[in-house]
């Protein structure tokens, strides 16, 4: 079973996964939530996904590959971002995203850590493309260095790492984390508000 069917299929395609791979990852993600990351055996994943253990190894040669695959899957499917078509709607979307992380802390930690494994890990800025496109559309005259700076800040905020940092270092509750992340994104976007392209203004 792959979560909300249609949506998950589109995401599987975007991640370059065939149906079996997607089913393995979905099963693994479910089991991590039930048992924690340390206690999920290959046998259990195989049974839940309805495939043989050999099939898992054919799709994911190592345990690390499987874990990283599950982390991308969780971030794109379980923590799917709400649709928004203005960069100024990111703060509101962030509120929702941070709340979702807070509801499923084990998966949030998994995603946050997978993104911090450097080049071998999962993409640490998955919302970059979308945000970059919105910035081009809405503020076409943004200087290159300024664009990079805003993008880096927004991608950083729109990550499971934000939830972990605010929870771990500041002991914040779910509601405060959502509030703080949205507030930081507002602050980052503030200097851009008066500079939107003529057709918007």
């Amino acid at each position: 079973m792959i979560g909300p069917a249609a949506e998950a299929e589109i995401i599987a395609e975007q991640l370059g996964l065939n149906r079996t791979s997607a089913e393995i990852l979905a099963a693994y993600v479910e089991l991590i939530e039930e048992l924690g990351t340390d206690d999920v055996s290959m046998k259990l994943i195989a049974r839940r996904a309805g495939v043989g253990e050999r099939t898992i190894f054919r799709h994911y040669a190592t345990r690390t590959d499987l874990l990283l695959g599950a982390a991308s899957w969780a971030d794109r499917v379980v923590f799917a971002r709400p649709d928004y078509d203005s960069v100024f709607d990111l703060p509101l979307a962030l509120r929702q995203t941070m709340t979702a992380y807070g509801q499923r802390p084990d998966l949030a930690f998994l995603v946050a850590e997978a993104m911090m494994r450097g080049a071998a890990g999962t993409d640490p800025a998955p919302s970059r493309e979308h945000l970059e496109r919105l910035l081009w559309q809405e503020i076409p005259d943004l200087q290159e260095d300024e664009r990079r700076s805003v993008l880096a800040a927004l991608c950083h905020l729109d990550s499971a790492g934000t939830w972990v940092a605010l929870q771990r270092e500041f002991g914040m509750a779910v509601h405060d984390i959502a509030d703080a992340a949205a507030w930081s994104a507002e602050a980052t976007l503030n200097p851009l508000r008066s500079r939107t392209g003529a057709h918007y203004g």
Binding site: A153, H156, A165, L166, F170, A180, S184
Partner: peptide
Amino acid sequence: SALCWFASAGFWARCRTAF
């Protein structure tokens, strides 16, 4: 908390890997 998050090793790592 925002200042700390932008001063963190995580910010350095994300900017290095993704940008």
